[in-house]
Every structure is written in C-alpha cells, then in structure tokens.
C-alpha cells in the first residue's frame, strides 16, 4: 500500500450512499408488503393453506417447500416452490 494507500485512504467497501440505497430498498419492500396487508404471519398462514390444497392432488415434499414474495419493478409476486413427489391417485 504505502504511498498509494495513504492517498486513497482506508479501503471503503460500503459507502454511505450504498448503505442508504440498501436500507431504503428493504424498507420500501416491507412498506409495500404492509400496504398490501400481508405481514409475515399471514404469509405463513397462506403457505399452510395452500399446501393443504396442493396435497389433495400431489404428494409434496413439505420440507423443501419455499414461499416468498418477490419484487418485480413496482409489482410484488407471490412465488411458491413446492417439490412434487408423485401424483395422488384419484
């Protein structure tokens, strides 16, 4: 480092600009969720109810089930990834 290090100062990995942007993105994401009236416990309730219905038709791997809300532009999508083991006989 030597002289160069002295000139550039200590390495700054995260600038306050980056920090502001990151914190803001997360806050706004949560704000949008709340506005949609879907707090985390409601999301879990939705997942459980959904699994009950799916389980009528498929045998599913409950342990590997993932439900999230994803943000796309100004819209939020509910994404469920439910691995199916086999079709249930009718």
């Amino acid at each position: 480092m030597g002289l160069l290090g002295w000139l550039t100062g200590p390495p700054k990995d995260v600038t306050s600009r980056d920090e502001a942007k990151k914190r803001l993105q997360l806050t706004i994401f949560h704000d949008r969720m709340e506005v949609m009236e879907l707090p985390p416990d409601r999301l879990n309730a939705l997942r459980d109810e959904l699994l009950l219905v799916i389980a009528k038709y498929f045998e599913v791997d409950i342990g590997r089930t993932e439900c999230t809300l994803e943000q796309d532009e100004r819209e939020v999508a509910f994404v469920a990834n439910i691995p199916v083991k086999r079709l249930r006989g009718s």
């Binding site: 700054k12 600038t15 306050s16 600009r17 980056d18 502001a20 942007k21 803001l24």
Partner: peptide, 8 residues
C-alpha cells in the same frame, strides 16, 4: 458517494 444519486 455520500448521497444517493439520480440513478439510485
């Protein structure tokens, strides 16, 4: 980098 910019 002390303030968010237009793009941000």
């Amino acid at each position: 980098n002390d303030m968010m910019g237009v793009d941000d």
